[in-house]
Design a protein around this nucleic acid. Sequence first.
DNA 1: TTAAAACCTTGATCCAAGTCATACGAACAG
DNA 2: CTGTTCGTATGACTTGGATCAAGGTTTTAA
Lengths: 253, 253
Amino acid sequence: MPATHTQSRFSSKLSSQCQNCSLSALCLPIALADEDINRLDQIIERKRPLKKGEVLFHQGQPFSSVFAVRTGTLKTFNITSSGEEQITGFYCPSELVGLSGIDDNTYPISAKALETTTVCEIPFSHLENLSAQIPSLKHQMFKVMSRKIGDDQQMMVLLGKKNADEKVASFLLNLSNRFKKRGYSATSFRLSMSRGEVGNYLGLAVETVSRVITRFQKNELIQVDGKEISIIDLPEMQKLVGVAPDCGKIAQF
Amino acid sequence: MPATHTQSRFSSKLSSQCQNCSLSALCLPIALADEDINRLDQIIERKRPLKKGEVLFHQGQPFSSVFAVRTGTLKTFNITSSGEEQITGFYCPSELVGLSGIDDNTYPISAKALETTTVCEIPFSHLENLSAQIPSLKHQMFKVMSRKIGDDQQMMVLLGKKNADEKVASFLLNLSNRFKKRGYSATSFRLSMSRGEVGNYLGLAVETVSRVITRFQKNELIQVDGKEISIIDLPEMQKLVGVAPDCGKIAQF
DNA sequence: TTAAAACCTTGATCCAAGTCATACGAACAG
DNA sequence: CTGTTCGTATGACTTGGATCAAGGTTTTAA
């Protein structure tokens, strides 16, 4: 399909990269002017792909940048004093990682690729400067961080109050929504994380995750083939996590 | 004690209010110029005190302001689809409430006073404008939100991985740290929330909270008289939550 | 291609914490 | 002041999910 013909002289090749890419969550919703997108684009460093298992940044390392996932998936985790890994989040394309490092100029978590993953590095000092010049960008930054706070609080509800079935169902529906939002199928997708990682994230043992998934399949809520998941009975799944039909956000982290 | 004598002509009575008050967490760490503090001060509305049980804002209500607690305590919570209350946080003096409302201009949680509580209302649009003029204020905003994200993630670790003893100990030490930070005793304080609210927050039944507290007292880790708590054996408590001696932040939400 | 390693599933058993029941003290509205 | 409600404590019982164990499958790397 041919590219749009009405490009301003500022919206170069770089600009169109930004428009297609992962950063859409950060910039597109506020409809930045072409010129502004271009300015944002110029501070971004596109990095070589990370291979599965490679680390983007380490817990404790000095904070310098936030990263937008372009393709692939990341997990963030920290190592507890007893040496176990605790996964704090999974990041899909268009999502921003590293925001929690701003506070004391140190990443409090590590980020590792679950599969081959490309990211855009956004040096934070540049982003901060630019956000002083582009008010809508600053507002968008606040929104992104605010949303993260709200989402994390929903996650707390999930961890504190829900049982294993509700946790796994919430997790699957959450992924489903995230895929849907960026144009992929909401009902059929591939888990890039292992059962063990899902369990770690949800506060469940591997065996429990496995059993719940098997049971969901027996009850014809989902169809499973290894890491491929199809959601068969979406309404029933939603009932399971306690989503009111008219209220997509609540109780779904 | 007499007030400082070297006030600029801009740092009026209002300014000195800000310096003593709850907002210190937001503005003092970055050492705003007197003039800037004054400007911040002028957008803040000081409200009549909330009585115990009064609601500051309701879940679903349009977002307009963030609030800094000056005295007293707030809890934030949301009502799940099944009608139960899920507490997502407690807010002590100097802490900011309502940041999660920025995202979609709606408060996703309610905030209610646990005791007589005074807050400063900071209209967000004004704050955002001002932050465009005072770069260090904008940076401070990012820091506050970033810290919240990091803290919430520690809370997830707590909810997902810790047992009842570790949860309650973490909770008490976290309060202890917050009191200490603003100059109160780190080892002797009053819980403004009920056992039920603690349990709700930590994902535990009331009875469990009660039993753990009783046990801690028997083991001479703490001394309890109703809502008054004294931490007797701080090192042992820290060992319980897995704090490395040289590392105050980790695993303590 | 194949061996090793990592991952997944299922069954059997166990225990931490939830639930139920009861009682007593504190707060509070009338 | 006083009855009612709310908060706290503690014991008895139950249970969801962890743990242990073992076998099958997929992925990885040589």
